[in-house]
Amino acid sequence: MEKQHNWPLWEIFIRSRQGLDHKHVGSLHAADSAMAIENARDVYTRRMEGISIWVVESKYVHASNPDEASSFYDPANDKVYRHPTFYDLPDELKHM
């Protein structure tokens, strides 16, 4: 196996404030996970952008294939009944 000389790439997710989801903000390089978290703190939260950090080594992220987008996502198009506005109710009805 060829010796790896470069620090691996990590994907960074930041929770900007309590109550919100962690959101992908970008990536960076680090030798290990502890360093990745610290680098993320120094790189991506210099302007108080976050209060919690997740890091995932990029090679462990598995993604759906855009070529299959139509079979994956289009079937949801005609399921409007999953959305509350699908149901026709009188305006007088409150608290629903």
């Binding site: 790896q4 030798a31 290990d32």
Partner: peptide, 12 residues
């Protein structure tokens, strides 16, 4: 420096 950091990560 970069090499040592990797070597240490391996050791850990």
């Amino acid at each position: 420096v970069r090499e040592a950091a990797l070597a240490h990560a391996e050791k850990k």
